[in-house]
Design a binder for these strands. Structure first.
Lengths: 130, 130
DNA sequence: ATATATGTTATATTTGTAATATAACATAAA
DNA sequence: TTTATGTTATATTACAAATATAACATATAT
């Protein structure tokens, strides 16, 4: 499995899980319809509690990235990821505003930012097998 | 004062404070050397506890945005904001990666993102008096 | 001198979240 | 009938956010 948890991080474990699954989908390492490990399996692989995995799965289901079936298990939504709506875009802007304010003050101008963003897009596109 | 706290938000109050002060500096509503309200004054204006304001101030001092003097009070760092270093840039990229992954999946492509970012830069430049 | 205002320190309490630990449940599939 | 799935329930531990009070040290104003 591609999951790697940093137990020193101040990012909660269930958030790290959500992030890595979303990144996995974006990198196409996980395709619509693909199955994810059971909550017990992933929990024991990583060495964490089943409820922590369940929390991540449930929140990704709530957002529309995953489909959870009581007996069959968990799969990547076959209909593809949820699309951005007004609410999502509004929240995104509210998140970006203070980030960009700080970034600007710290001397990272728009050009620098765009180059960082390009770098991240490359990370998401290239790594087909890693 | 320009501070407006959303008590419904899941963003902690002290984080909202930090964000709004940084945005204030970026918009040049607050200039280097400008004085901020005392912890007690701001706390009572907003209707929160003095320690919550103090926590925000201390963390901004720690980052280099503010100078705190035991008797004179709190001012915006006269030497200007702290500049980005390697650590900051690394953390920034780690924050952006999952954001951009989700955004991409949701159908917001690079062009859309750049237009959102431009919109935010405008917000930071225009509002000289509001 | 005295009072005032500053940030600071200390202690305690309440509330909520993250994470874990155990156990049991319902049910499709083997 | 067994196994594996997610689900639900209960409890516990650890920590963070926010508050409440009180006292402290000290530069500045009166």
């Amino acid at each position: 499995m591609f999951i790697q948890i940093n137990f020193e991080s101040d990012v909660p474990i269930y958030e790290q899980l959500k992030n890595q699954i979303i990144i996995g989908i974006a990198k196409k390492e996980l395709a619509p319809g693909d199955r994810l490990p059971s909550v017990r399996k992933l929990a024991s692989d990583i060495g964490i509690n089943l409820h922590t995995v369940n929390k991540a799965y449930k929140q990704l289901e709530e957002k529309g990235f995953l489909i959870i079936h009581r007996q069959k298990g968990v799969i990547i939504n076959p209909d593809g990821p949820p699309q951005a709506d007004e609410t999502y875009t509004k929240t995104l802007k509210e998140t970006l505003l203070p980030m960009i304010a700080e970034l600007e003050l710290r001397g990272i101008d728009k050009i620098n930012l765009l180059s960082i963003i390009n770098e991240i897009y490359e990370q998401l596109e290239v790594d087909r097998d890693e």
